[in-house]
Amino acid sequence: MPKLLIIDGSSMLSTSYYGNLPKSILFAKTEEEKEKYYEQILHTSDGKYTNAMFTMLRTLLGIYKKVKPEYVAFVFDKTRDTFRRTELGADFYKANRKETAKPLKEQFIQMEEFLQEIGCAVFMSDDYEADDYAASLVEKFEGPDLQTYVLTKDHDYFQVVSEYTRMWRVVNKDKLEQLKKDYGFFGSDVYESLPANVFEYTPEIVYAEEGVYPQQIPVLLAITGDPGDGIPGCKGVSSAAAPLVDEYKSLDEIYAAIDDCEGVAKKEKELNGFWKEYLGIGRSPLKALKTNREMVYLSEKLATMKRDIEISCGIEDLKLRVDIEKLKEELGRYEMFSLIKEVENL
């Protein structure tokens, strides 16, 4: 069966950047101190930074050798001022993140142009994030005649996992070994066929790890929040979130149960009793959920990937048709001569 591989380019490039930095920068305490050592970052003779690009391209070559997907799409973030800020009014969304370092910012532009130059499909815009494009691509193309995989390290992608779509999550060695131990029923041959440091998530494994199925992940994040993205959620309710979402499936149903109490103390006590006895919730989340209702609903909107971005291309437009000569030319332009040898040996 043909394979569609959707790659979170922003996640991969960022990971590649921080995984291939000089120790002088990694251990520097201030941004000013880090900037003093930028010249130590891998770069071309004319000063173009390449440490993240080199690592990502080497990773991609390894993935190609092992997986050989028929169709490939790259998704990138372009700005933090997407519809989540402009339309939903969530100015705080991702506001906790530091400004992207200059060497990485330049390599985002270089990498996106590099992929387009060699004939790869790249999706990004000012309005949507990489994960929105990934979800919309899944929505359009997944099905029984296509194996769809999404490669990323970000946990919010759990929501796209389905019968036809698997998440290939990049994890560290210890986490990978633990996951293999916990869910080793696939057999070692399956793990050996995956890219390095990647674990394949099915809907059942998402449920085992998160306590809810993929389609309820945005509801879960609406309550737990997501500190990495600055999604507030409902403070003090994180431990009760999974059993609540697993039981009620949606925020509307959770709040319907709360509203049925009509603010009557006796009814609320009965509801708390049900949650404690049947859902195993010790500390009642009732007051927090009532207080933070508006923010919880906004958090759900922030956590939900858009699945309806117009994707004008067809599946054949995602066919992996890399121009090898152009690839070698671009690698030479960035002075990645060792990778040219790898390409010649494919």
Score class of each variant (00 low, 15 high):
343 V>Y: 07
289 L>K: 08
70 E>S: 03
42 L>F: 06
293 R>V: 08
170 V>C: 10
223 I>E: 01
4 L>T: 11
254 I>T: 06
164 Y>E: 07
149 Y>D: 11
107 Q>H: 12
129 E>C: 03
111 M>T: 15
22 P>M: 04
9 G>H: 01
183 Y>M: 00
80 R>F: 03
112 E>Q: 13
218 P>W: 02
214 P>Y: 03
311 I>G: 04
132 D>A: 02
100 T>W: 00
322 V>G: 09
58 R>D: 12
326 K>Q: 14
183 Y>P: 03
67 V>L: 08
280 G>L: 08
199 F>G: 10
14 S>T: 14
246 D>E: 14
245 V>H: 11
232 P>F: 01
174 D>S: 15
177 E>F: 13
308 D>A: 04
303 A>I: 04
284 S>I: 14
85 R>G: 00
257 A>W: 15
27 F>G: 12
73 A>R: 04
77 D>A: 00
6 I>W: 06
25 I>G: 07
248 Y>D: 04
43 H>D: 01
191 Y>C: 03
1 M>A: 15
34 K>W: 09
283 R>E: 14
84 R>S: 09
31 E>R: 08
328 K>L: 08
69 P>A: 01
3 K>C: 10
17 Y>G: 09
207 Y>I: 05
308 D>C: 00
277 E>S: 12
270 E>R: 11
99 E>S: 10
14 S>L: 11
60 L>D: 06
127 D>I: 10
245 V>L: 10
273 G>C: 13
188 S>M: 10
48 K>F: 00
205 I>A: 02
95 A>L: 06
158 F>N: 07
217 I>N: 03
85 R>Q: 02
147 Q>C: 02
150 V>L: 09
322 V>S: 11
84 R>G: 00
309 I>H: 00
159 Q>G: 11
99 E>L: 06
107 Q>I: 06
297 Y>L: 09
99 E>V: 05
70 E>C: 09
237 V>G: 03
240 A>P: 13
253 E>I: 00
72 V>S: 14
175 K>Q: 11
35 E>I: 01
201 Y>M: 00
269 K>A: 14
193 S>E: 12
9 G>C: 08
324 I>G: 00
23 K>P: 02
37 Y>H: 15
23 K>F: 02
138 V>D: 09
109 I>A: 06
223 I>L: 14
16 S>L: 09
28 A>M: 08
16 S>P: 04
304 T>I: 10
202 T>P: 00
328 K>A: 04
48 K>P: 00
120 C>S: 07
151 L>V: 13
169 R>A: 04
129 E>V: 08
15 T>R: 15
8 D>L: 06
270 E>V: 13
303 A>P: 05
176 L>R: 04
144 P>F: 01
11 S>D: 15
309 I>L: 13
239 S>F: 01
327 L>C: 13
